[in-house]
Design a protein around this nucleic acid. Structure first.
Length: 417
DNA sequence: TCTGGGGTCCTAGGACCC
DNA sequence: TCTGGGGTCCTAGGACCC
């Protein structure tokens, strides 16, 4: 038996923990650049605010319904996530952190899984202030179904889905597009051929499912029928690709400004590589214009460089990223977004030196360790490469940013008695 | 004026090998 | 007139997830 714990409206809930007067009020959290809605409290959902809706279209309703709006504060959400996860980990044998706001847990051998879940939910709420829902079932995909029911149709926030009859009822109730693993494209395809519910899909033929939804779809259906295909993965795997990208808060058209941002993204990728103790062999960069602006000339520049020796050295990765940038940059466009991706990742311990390598890697490694030490202590990019610049005009728009209550001592809540 | 960021996996097709 | 069979590796694109 597995359980899936899911934080309710996670980002909005994080903001409310530190501003309890916002309980029962509509709250939304915006994406980077205050671009579009990425989290909504139940009250905001009830007002009809859609996921991904651009913020500028919501101006009127925000005012008329007095909706509380926040810029996204990922330092806060990441830290709150850690607290929720560690609270749950104290109570279960095995656990997989599946995303920032979800975890799968081993509930096998629990005499009363529902009571266990209710107690867990209570503890998380008490210790962190974050409300969660828990779905319990024999497979991950069924846990997802149980979680949906827990969230929408229970008072306890907990739902156990293990009885055959009950599973059948649930699958007949569940629209196929709400299944974990069925996205927009597959959903519209399935509806076109008359498959409307999860139950309909379960009755489809295996080879037909594989042909149209690939083996991933087939695994999902097998899980719905009760056969586990996805195990609990306790250890976080090393990432195979690492990307840092941003949309710009203002218009960027000069190569110089792009250089500042691209070198910052590259240096961030190198930092992430060092954090997971791995090296990359390929570095890619992309720059794009604003696809939403119908009047702008459109351009997408994308290129990558393969290296002889895997590296996680900021200096080297930044240098290559800038080389790549020179290749794809075209004058005369207004750029909206840029990004750096590092891939072909190998563990740092398996770094294979090239025969013709002439970089003093030991020395560079020392520089990188010092850099990380200082920046971890004093703040991100406190010490950086000169090419990363100091004006940073491209940086994010964040007009409604809440304090980093739990990660910056200066921003901690002060309670006056 | 104004539309996020970061991932995974699978498949098809091309280039290449013997 | 006529051109096999069996592989691997790589990449781009598309689907999905949060």
């Amino acid at each position: 038996m597995l359980a899936l714990a899911d934080c309710n409206n996670f980002y909005a809930s994080c903001e409310r923990v530190f501003q309890p007067h916002l309980q029962n009020k509509p709250v939304v959290v915006l994406s980077n650049n205050d671009g579009c809605v990425i989290a909504r409290s139940n009250e905001a959902k009830a007002l009809g605010i859609k996921m991904g809706e651009p913020a500028f279209r919501l101006k009127d309703i925000i005012k008329s319904k007095n909706i509380q709006v926040f810029s996204s504060n990922f330092a806060l959400y990441g830290d709150m996530s850690k607290r929720v996860m560690s609270t749950m980990r104290e109570e279960v044998k095995r656990m997989e952190v599946y995303s920032i706001d979800e975890s799968f847990m081993d509930f096998s051998g629990e005499a009363s899984p529902e009571e266990k879940a209710i107690a867990l939910r209570k503890k998380v709420l008490q210790h962190t202030g974050i409300p969660i829902s828990i779905g319990i079932a024999p497979t991950k995909t069924l846990c997802k179904v149980a979680g949906l029911i827990a969230k929408k149709h229970t008072k306890t926030g907990v739902f156990l889905l293990n009885d055959k009859k009950l599973i059948e009822r649930a699958l007949k109730w569940l629209p196929v597009e709400d299944l974990w693993g069925v996205g927009r494209k597959h959903a519209s395809f399935l509806k076109n051929v008359g498959i409307n519910t999860a139950y309909d899909l379960c009755n489809a033929d295996n080879s037909w499912i594989k042909r149209h939804l690939s083996v991933i779809g087939l695994r999902m259906v097998k899980e719905l029928r009760g056969t586990p295909c996805f195990g609990l993965e306790e250890n976080a795997k090393q990432k195979k690709n690492i990307c840092t990208s941003r949309s710009f808060g203002k218009k960027v058209n000069k190569l110089e400004e792009l250089k500042e941002s691209v070198s910052s993204f590259a240096s961030d990728c190198a930092y992430k590589l060092r954090q997971q103790k791995s090296c990359a062999t390929r570095i890619s960069i992309f720059i794009t214009t604003n696809p939403f602006n119908p009047n702008a000339k459109q351009y997408k520049g994308l290129t990558s460089i393969k290296m002889d020796t895997p590296t996680n050295d900021s200096i080297e990765i930044v240098r290559l990223a800038l080389q790549a940038l020179e290749k794809v940059y075209r004058d005369g466009y207004v750029y909206k977004k840029a990004g750096v991706v590092v891939s072909d990742i190998v563990p740092q311990s398996q770094q294979q030196l090239s025969l013709f390598d002439n970089l003093d890697r030991k020395k560079h490694q020392k520089i990188m360790s010092s850099l990380d030490l200082i920046n971890n202590k004093m703040g991100k990019d406190k010490v950086r490469l000169a090419v990363q610049g100091h004006q940073r005009k491209w940086r994010l728009k964040q007009e409604r940013l809440s304090p980093c209550y739990s990660t910056q001592i200066k921003e901690a809540l002060v309670i006056k008695l």
